[in-house]
Design a protein around this nucleic acid. Structure first.
Lengths: 245, 245
DNA sequence: CCACGTACTTTGTCACGACAAATTGACATG
DNA sequence: CATGTCAATTTGTCGTGACAAAGTACGTGG
C-alpha cells in the first residue's frame, strides 16, 4: 500500500487518532483500495515514524468502525463495500426467504461437545460441560453467504437434529420445541476468512468477513445460545444507528 | 478497595481478560461496592503482579461494558446501579413530559463560538470557524438530571434563542425552523462528574455520570449537531440490545 | 496431486518506562 | 468565606522490546 500519512506531533489530537483519521480518509476516498492489505504493523510503524502500539491503536479504531479487518498471521485488510441489514433479531433464513431468495443450508456439525471457556461463561455453565454445537453453511442462489457456529444449552439437544436444520432456521426449531428466543446482545465486527471458511463460502483466500457474536436469552432471561456467525462481507453488513421515530 | 483477584498465568485466557472477568464478578456480587473507587492503576498493577497496560486493558473492557468510569486525575470508579432508557432518538424533554415529570431547563450558554477540532470534524466545517454552542442543565422535580452541551452549524443560530430553550426541547426548535433531525450515530459511556457538573447536578463530587456523545444528521444526510450530554447515573442509563420483533 | 511438516509472517499479549493532561486537595490571600 | 495557585494524584499517550498464537507459503514425500 502506498499512502502518505501526515502526522502533526504539535497537534493536541493524539497521534493514534490522527493516524486513524488519515487512514479512514484514504479508505473512503479510494486512495487505499477496498480489499487491499495494509502493510504489517511493524512496517507501518517504521513508515510513519510512530510506535507499533500507536499503529495498533489507530487500526483498532478503524476495526471497531468497520473499515478494517485483521487476522493474526494474515494481516490487516480494508473491508470491501457493504450492503446493509437492519439491526434486528430476524434470522438470516427468514430474511432471505422474505426477499425471494432460496436459502440453502449445509450442516457441518450438530453434536454435543465440551463447552469452550468463553461459551461456558456466556451460557453460565461449567467450562467443559457438554453443550450442543451446530455449524452450518448458508447459501443463497448457490452462492455461499454465511458460516454459522452456535453453542446451545445441552437441554436443547433433543429439539434439534441435523435433518431439521437443513430445512428450517434454528430459532424456528427452538420455538417449536417451546424455547423462546427473546433478547440478545450482539457484538459485530469483521475479519478475513480462514482457508476453511473461504472454501466453504467460495470466496477467495483472505476475503473479509462480517462477524457477529451473539448471546441469546430466552424469555426468562436465561442465556440459551452463543452464536458466532461470519458472513461474506461483499453481501452483508449490519448497521447500528438510529432513526428519528 | 480490598478485593482478591486470582490470575492463572497458565490459562489460555489472556491475563487482561481474567482480570476484567474477576473485577466484573466482584462488582456484580457486591464485594466491590457500587460507587467505590478502585485503587490507581499503578497500585493495582503492583497488587496483582501484572503490568499497568494489562490493568488498563482490563479496565477498558469494564468501562466499555458500563461497569466502571474513569477520569484523569480522579481515578476509576464503580458505576452505580442503573435505570434504563431505550435506545431511541426521543428527546429527554419529551420523555420526561410523557412520564408526567416537569422538566425544567436552565440555559448556561447559547452563543457562537470557534469550533473545537473534534466538533469541526463531525460537522464537516473548518476548525475554528463559528458554531452555535448551547449548554443547559435539565432537571426534573427540581432534581438535576442532565448537563447538555451541543454544537450546531452556525446557520442554525437564528433559529434558537436562550429564552426558547427554557421552554422547549432543542429538536422541537429545530423542526419549527425547518431543520429536520433525522439520523444519529451515538456513543455511550460513563465517567465521574467534574466539580462543575457535580455542582450543576447537585450530586456529590466524583459521582458517576452517563455520557452520550452524538452526531445528528438532518434528512439530507448533513451533520447538523454534535451533542455531548452527561446524566446523573443514578437516574439514567441507555440500553443497547435488541428484542425479538 | 494431496497431505503433512516446517519456516516465515503477522497479529495478540505482556512487560517496562517516561511524560502530558485533567482533576483535586491543601494552603495562602483578600 | 471565596478565590487563586501550586503540588500531588491519577489517567492518557507514546515509546521500546519480547514472546506467543494463528495463518500462510513452500517443500517434500507418498
Amino acid at each position: 500500500m502506498n499512502y502518505t500519512v501526515v502526522l502533526d506531533r504539535q497537534s493536541p489530537v493524539p497521534l493514534y487518532h490522527q493516524l486513524a483519521a488519515s487512514l479512514k480518509e484514504g479508505i473512503t476516498s479510494g486512495c487505499i483500495p477496498k480489499g487491499s492489505l495494509l502493510g504489517n504493523e511493524v512496517g507501518l510503524a517504521d513508515r510513519w515514524s510512530v510506535s507499533r502500539p500507536t499503529v495498533r491503536r489507530a487500526i483498532e479504531e478503524l476495526v471497531g468502525d468497520g473499515f478494517l479487518v485483521r487476522r493474526r498471521g494474515v494481516g490487516t485488510q480494508v473491508v470491501n463495500d457493504e450492503v446493509r441489514r437492519p439491526f434486528t433479531l430476524s434470522s438470516l433464513y427468514d430474511d432471505l426467504n422474505a426477499s425471494g431468495r432460496r436459502p440453502t443450508t449445509r450442516v457441518l456439525a450438530c453434536e454435543l461437545v465440551p463447552s469452550p471457556a468463553t461459551v461456558a461463561e456466556s451460557l453460565q455453565v461449567e467450562p467443559g460441560s457438554p453443550v450442543l454445537f451446530i455449524r452450518r453453511v448458508r447459501s443463497t442462489n448457490d452462492v455461499g453467504l454465511a458460516v454459522m457456529s452456535n453453542w446451545l444449552l445441552a437441554s436443547i439437544d433433543p429439539l434439534v437434529s441435523a435433518d431439521d436444520l437443513v430445512t428450517a432456521g434454528l430459532y424456528s426449531l427452538l420455538r417449536k420445541g417451546g424455547v423462546r428466543p427473546h433478547y440478545a446482545v450482539q457484538r459485530l465486527g469483521a475479519r478475513v476468512a480462514t482457508r476453511e471458511e473461504a472454501s466453504l463460502l467460495n470466496v477467495e483466500a483472505r476475503a473479509p468477513l462480517v462477524t457477529m457474536r451473539r448471546v441469546m436469552q430466552d424469555d426468562t432471561g436465561r442465556a440459551i445460545e452463543v452464536g458466532d456467525h461470519v458472513y461474506d462481507a461483499r453481501h452483508y453488513v449490519i448497521e447500528m444507528s438510529v432513526v428519528e421515530s
